[in-house]
Design a protein around this nucleic acid. Structure first.
Length: 437
RNA sequence: GCGAUUGUGGUGAAGUGGUUAACACUCCGGCUUGUGGCGCCGGCAUUCGUGGGUUCGAUUCCCAUCAGUCGCCCCA
């Protein structure tokens, strides 16, 4: 038997409703913040990721799905969403659009060759936002507020927003030098990974879980202390906006993030508790003012974030999140061969009229058909046998109340329609009034 | 890339170096060819992830492999 590839998963009909509801909420929050959806290809020229994410990051150095196509071109299945969106932004000259600040979001599968575990797959779904064209800390604040709103809309509480600033290119250079100077004398006391990072990506040493508590790191200089004036005021302003917007956050001076392209603001959203197992990060993002330029675009600043949608789903599983149902309105019970054609005619009319209808295709007994209707969560069952066909009538049973009426077949459609639009309960009980819409 | 752990029907799961692989649920059929959800009766694994080895004999022991789960690394 051929089975799914490691680290992938099928979303079966029984759970797809939750995904659809989740995706719908994400889109609706995106709309409120006025971000527009962009869809880019699932694979790109490999160079895109090497140049943006960073050659020596784990993502690029050991986690990409690469393949050569028949034209000997190097392709990579996208491991993240920012680079493709930036590529598209540049290639489609969106910087010349009527709207000088382009606010985009995307949602779709990403691919990383990793060992799967809780909250981690080889094909996973990310939802992310990217806002181009302004260096204003207002935009950083908006993006963070947007991310928080998504969680709020999903009723995921108990989250922790951590922010930090890496500063601009100048701050980063200055800081890196100081950090290397500080670490140099005792570099051999750090873990093996950190010794490698010393060469490749010294900033990451800061949030190493192994060495975190060593005095060498505790006493290490922090990026925040090496910010240029502009960088410092960018960060201060951001904090001012977040306070004004009533967004809760904590400043984590050791937060650096793994991707190369970040400047200024970086942030992560974590879930408290053990909803996600050992993974707690549900969203990460930050500002990347030099990325567009370094990918041969104009010098345009940008800021964004990415959510792990699978992780959102995992978190939602723990809090009784209601997905879209696939209940049907009417189950048409057909009794007898001679009734089939007339029944199909009826079904077709109902469906054209927008009534979710289904029937049995296996000549099941009445009892078995009732069971089927139950499993489909049918609101009504219409029984259609020989006598009904002769009389031009049909029995309609309300599955909730058990009431049954015999009506003219011609009136079936309007009957079902009226019954369905009747509120099923007292709407004063609705929390938000959306249930009966 | 490293480590731990698991792999028996549709599902959850017992079990043993040796004739018919327990049990529960689901499902199917019947009692009941026109009103189901209850009840009763009956049925559903030539086979224990896959390949190899040890053995007279393996689902049970060993090795490999694949897959799941969890953790490390890293990240969403």
């Amino acid at each position: 038997m051929i089975q799914k590839m490691k680290g992938t998963y099928d979303i079966l009909p029984s759970e797809v409703g939750k995904w659809q509801a989740l995706e719908r909420k994400i889109r609706s929050v995106s709309k409120i913040y006025h971000y527009q959806e962009i869809r880019t290809p699932i694979f790109e020229n490999s160079d895109l990721f090497h140049r943006s994410v960073g050659e020596h990051t784990d993502i690029v150095s050991k986690e990409t799905y690469d393949f050569m196509d028949r034209g000997k071109r190097k392709n990579t299945l996208r491991p993240e969403g920012t680079a493709p969106v930036v590529r598209s932004y540049i290639e489609n000259k969106m910087y010349a659009d009527k709207l000088p600040v382009q606010k985009l979001f995307y949602m779709g599968p990403m691919f990383r060759y990793e060992r799967p575990q809780k909250g981690r797959f080889r094909q996973f779904v990310q939802f992310g936002a990217e806002a181009f064209g302004s260096n204003s800390p207002m935009l950083d604040a908006e993006v963070i507020a947007y991310a928080v709103s998504v969680l709020k809309a999903l009723k995921i509480k108990d989250v922790r927003v951590e922010i930090n600033s890496l500063g601009d290119e100048e701050s980063k250079m200055l800081y890196k030098e100081e950090l290397l100077k500080h670490l140099a004398p005792e570099i051999d006391t750090l873990c093996h990974d950190c010794q490698t990072r010393y060469q490749s990506n010294p900033l990451r040493i800061l949030d190493c879980k192994i060495d975190q508590d060593k005095p060498l790191l505790k006493e290490a200089p922090k990026p925040i202390d090496y910010l240029t004036k502009e960088a410092q005021s960018h960060f201060d302003e951001l904090i001012g906006y977040l306070d004004a917007m009533d967004i809760n956050y904590t400043i984590n001076n050791n937060l650096v993030r793994g991707l190369d392209y970040y400047t200024h603001t970086v942030f992560e959203v974590h879930l408290n508790g053990d909803l996600l197992g050992m993974q707690t990060a549900i969203c990460g993002g930050g500002r990347y003012n030099d990325l567009v330029k370094s990918l041969d675009g104009p010098d345009i600043p940008a800021v964004g974030f990415a959510f792990g949608v699978d992780r959102l789903m995992t978190a939602l599983d723990a809090i009784d999140f209601q997905g879209d149902d696939d209940d049907i309105h009417l189950y048409l019970m057909i009794l007898g061969e001679e009734q089939k054609a007339e029944a199909m005619k009826l079904v077709q009319r109902l469906r054209i009229g927008g009534i979710l209808t289904d029937v049995d295709f296996l000549d099941k007994s009445m009892k078995a058909q009732f069971k089927l209707a139950d499993r489909m969560n049918a609101r009504f069952v219409a029984i259609y046998g020989a006598q009904e066909r002769i009389d031009g009538e049909i029995n309609v049973k309300n599955q909730k109340t058990g009431e049954e009426h015999r009506i003219s077949t011609k009136k079936l459609y309007t009957h079902i329609l009226t019954e369905l639009t009747k509120p099923s309960h007292d709407c004063e009980d609705c929390e938000d009034g959306t249930c009966c819409g």
